[in-house]
Design a protein around this nucleic acid. Structure first.
Lengths: 208, 208
DNA sequence: AAATTAATTGATTAGTTAATCAAAATAATA
DNA sequence: TATTATTTTGATTAACTAATCAATTAATTT
């Protein structure tokens, strides 16, 4: 899996900046024309550099997309976790999780689109699409495990009911993900969606 | 939008069969290697015909994908609606909707994968991705409107609470969609997921 | 059976793709 | 400054891409 032939540890300042620039251009290109049309030539043109320079800094297109994916996941994860950590009770944390996840989507639409484009298009060398990929044991999704931890904590403290944690987690994540995807809520603004979704989840998680 | 240069009304038996065969080969190809790699040549090879024959029966690749998409949506829709219509009360219909939607995914994984591949890859001539596309007023999603109708009916009969219908609909659809996508529930079997999700949604929709 | 229409193919086209490489430019180091 | 290492480019390559078209085969109609 991790066979980068460009060691990142001791990369020069200029190389780091260039890589950053290429990644940023790739994000914009993905948001603009989608993964299918996002060729190295298009990305290079947007960055104002030659295509060969991308090949110099990234081993191949997949390598570029992987770095891009990691960066985007890191950003949204830290955004959400920062806000979750402000809460003290499971209820507060759960509310913060939902509100922050939705807010990030609205404030960073290009990132979110680029993320979707990669997840639903990129494939491993063995042709397994990313969206079918299990999170590896070691590098599992921080957001998922955080959410599940909140839910379990609430159950142990007796404030949440006796639901199936992984499935409740899916319900919450699904509802968050559907916000920008499902057109049936495209005329519902963020504040309404956020507060109504929180109400629904509060009732669903409540101990009877 | 609807400018097919191959009128479907009076197509011969042989043409209909060939089109059907091409669509089926396309479904398998999408499931197998994904939209990005699913060239006309690959689809033709799987069908055992020449690429030119695809062009003869479909105006272009997009036309093929659109027919494919329509067929897949029709199948899953009729599968779910048949089972929903067995129910008499809003509670029964809602339960049937969830159970049938999940069951279809499990019994028709290749169709579901092909559907995902198209929705997240195909684009209109104006480069708008399908997943960002609003359902047209006339041809809106039958499943979405059915689900919302069930929810509204339950509210009017006083068996459901006072939630936001469009958002509750999103919650339900999101949880259904996450089932095959989210790896955190990959070791939860259909029966468990189905019954647990139904429990969660029953509590969420319940009138307090 | 002859004539006409429909279906199918193989070859070809013009365009794009990711990736490579020698050469040139720039920066860092001695 | 001279030398060496890094960064960047332009040109090139071989593999694919969707789509077209004249020629061929198969089916249908007269």
């Amino acid at each position: 899996m991790n066979q980068d032939h460009k060691p990142e540890g001791k990369q020069s300042f200029i190389a780091a900046a260039r890589r950053e620039q290429i990644i940023e251009a790739a994000v914009q290109t993905l948001d603009d024309i989608g993964y299918v049309n996002a060729s190295l030539a298009k990305i290079a043109k947007r960055a104002g550099i030659s295509t060969a320079l991308i090949s110099y800094h990234f081993s191949d297109k997949n390598d570029l997309m992987n770095h891009l994916l990691i960066k985007l996941v890191e950003r949204s994860t830290s955004y959400v976790l920062e806000r979750v950590n402000q809460g003290h009770t499971p209820e507060e944390k759960l509310e913060a999780f939902i509100a922050a996840s939705l807010a990030y989507q609205v404030t960073h639409p290009a990132h979110q689109t680029a993320l979707i484009e990669i997840i639903f298009n990129a494939r491993t060398p063995e042709q397994v699409p990313y969206y079918k990929l299990d999170a590896d044991e070691d590098e599992e999704d921080a957001l998922v495990s955080t959410l599940q931890h909140i839910l379990r904590e609430g159950q142990q403290q007796g404030v949440f009911g006796n639901f199936h944690v992984a499935i409740m987690s899916n319900v919450i994540q699904g509802a968050i993900g559907e916000f920008l995807l499902n057109p049936s809520t495209k005329d519902v603004d963020l504040e309404t969606y956020s507060s109504e979704l929180i109400s629904i989840i509060q009732q669903a998680t409540k101990k009877l």
